[in-house]
Design a protein around this nucleic acid. Structure first.
Lengths: 367, 367
DNA sequence: CTGAAAGCGCTTACAG
DNA sequence: CTGAAAGCGCTTACAG
């Protein structure tokens, strides 16, 4: 089915059109429509005439013209890796943050534009090109920018980062206390009676991944459990790569040498574990306990639901917007920028059904 | 920790600056930098000088100025309900589409701006305000716009919709063949031996929900299974509302009168079912089969993985971009617009582990 | 208190 | 083939 539409080549109404129809200057129309304080000097009757004309012409201010005149687009950018892998798992972590960002941006009457990256290093030029006035500032989600590339970042664009893996000069970074989060959840496993706890760790170049490892090791040390290198397997955050690693690991590990609990790099990896465990008849938490990190939607849609560490990703996204807007405001003025280097959010233990006492302990209790 | 940054109030370099440094006009610089065909007339040496000057000044074209001059922002808008509910479940359906959109938009060197709506009717003015030149066109994801509000939509902005619940004049709508998808998955349940199949249906105002109901009823009719109104329970798509409904339904339904299979409105609702079933000790698929719709990430992260109907949401998002770009191109020219009213994508049955023969049939086979 | 003018940074059409 | 001029639609600073 197809249809021909004769396009009416009518351009949208401009401020000049509105002024003409109302019998005033474009400037007067501008003042009234923007509700500027200057509009107070316009007589109420003229005001109404202008508003009526605008409504009649369905006037809509042109964002580009306004941006050019005001040097401000009222649009924030968010750059990050949206897609977790080639097979296309959406990056839940990014999306949670993103949602916090658009919510908060909308409250401040800001639009949000996303720049979907695949690789920070390779796409650094796209990021630079992105900072061409179409956005007033950019939120970098978990950036990992090689030192050599840092200088490519435009100097006239304000940035804020979340979970940055790179120290960026004069960019405030929002983090969460992942070390404590990891400590607490591993401590929880220990308290349940686990002593052989596998950690599926993130890529060591990721700062957050390191923090999780530190928390894990500190919790073991506090419980006088010696660290066993065989119980630390790097899977990374990506669920597709993780699947291969977990599968391989299960295949090459003696069934009786299996740990009693697994602390996965993040919820996605935990969900992969759950599936792979099910594949070989290992039930969670009956046969093996499982915990994750992030508290993304995956943690709640799993059955059993996942015990995990909540990072307040939405709140962090919202806070990033507020800090960025403040920076933008300051960049337009002459005040000093006093924004902090780092803001740390607390993490929170979320206990659900996926972690329980080890099977041996349960049997002992029964028998 | 805090730090004071003395802001260098240096403005970004303009084309005029580049021209000045290279000893040419801004126009010549523009031609070279844009690689326009007019640049061929610029001598190679001058060219190099201009490029060098641009690099030295770290010149970056100003998007607003360019947009104003060209009447084109190279930015596409996506409007939809991102957040599924107040409790904050992200709308996986939207996100899958959104991902297809940004991918394809990036390939065409277009940015993507999202307008997160909460309610189509209440937020219609935000949508209108959104069409102020900051985007060249807008993709409407599952719009539901009351007739009275349709006229508020700006006439100068090209639109494309996905799964529209509203007939919008001169807007191409992308759909998928949900009726067939529903038919096939219910037929699959029937073929497994199920005769008592519960459908948790979408809100009847949703066009897609109606199509799923039709497919469901047609599959029953073809199998000579009489339609039982008691086996159609409206939950809507929202998982939080759905949970209440499912819980209530389970409570008020005699355990022995339970259906042997459930066809949920979408994957999210199916995941809610899975949890609620587990709650009362009902195992999937051993005690009850379960299927969903959409094939979002939830379907793959459930255990057991969910049999469902795949809608090619990413492909649809990508196609929406292409149709929209074509419309934008046409709107700038004088050609006729011949875009179709509706494009229908096929759905696809995805069989996983959540649906099996009914328990009785399995027992019979064993005994 | 008002409106005419200049300017934001770019591109396009038009003289030389 | 080149560059000066006009214009995109708005806002801001400045004369009247």
């Amino acid at each position: 089915m197809s249809r021909s539409v004769k396009l009416k080549r009518v351009r949208a109404a401009t401020l000049a059109d509105v002024g003409r129809l109302a019998g005033v200057s474009a400037m007067a129309a501008s003042a009234v429509i923007n509700g500027a304080r200057t509009s107070s000097r316009i007589p109420p009757l003229t005001r109404d005439r202008i508003l009526l004309a605008a409504a009649k012409l369905r006037y809509r201010p042109n964002a580009a013209a306004r941006a050019l005149a005001q040097r401000c687009m009222n649009t924030l950018g968010v750059a990050g890796i949206v897609d977790a892998g080639p097979t296309g798992g959406l990056n839940q972590y990014f999306l949670e943050i993103f949602n916090g960002v658009i919510e908060c941006a909308a409250r401040h009457e800001q639009n949000t534009t996303v720049l979907a990256l695949h690789d920070w290093e390779r796409d650094i030029y796209r990021l630079a090109a992105f900072c061409d006035g179409r956005v007033d500032g950019v939120i970098l989600v978990a950036p990992m920018i090689p030192d050599a590339c840092v200088s490519i970042l435009p100097e006239h664009t304000p940035f804020v980062s979340l979970h940055s893996n790179t120290r960026l000069p004069s960019v405030t970074d929002l983090e969460s206390d992942e070390e404590t989060g990891a400590y607490e959840i591993v401590h929880h496993l220990v308290a349940l009676g686990h002593r052989r706890i596998l950690h599926l760790s993130a890529d060591p170049v990721m700062v957050g991944g390191q923090r999780r490892v530190h928390g894990y090791r500190r919790a073991l040390a506090d419980a006088h459990i010696p660290f066993d290198p065989a119980l630390m397997v790097p899977t990374g955050y990506d669920q597709f790569r993780a699947r291969d690693v977990v599968r391989e690991w299960l295949k090459t590990t003696d069934r009786r040498a299996l740990p009693t609990a697994v602390f996965a790099a993040n919820d996605n990896v935990a969900s992969v574990c759950l599936e792979e465990f099910a594949e070989i008849g290992l039930r969670v938490p009956d046969d093996i306990s499982l915990v994750g990190f992030d508290d993304t939607v995956a943690a709640r849609t799993m059955v059993p639901q996942l015990s995990t560490v909540r990072q307040p990703l939405r709140e962090m996204g919202a806070k990033a917007v507020e800090i960025l807007l403040e920076r933008i405001r300051l960049a337009h003025g002459t005040e000093m920028d006093e924004s902090p280097v780092t803001v740390v959010f607390p993490t929170q233990l979320v206990l659900r059904a996926s972690a329980d006492k080890p099977a041996a302990a349960r049997l002992a209790a029964v028998g």
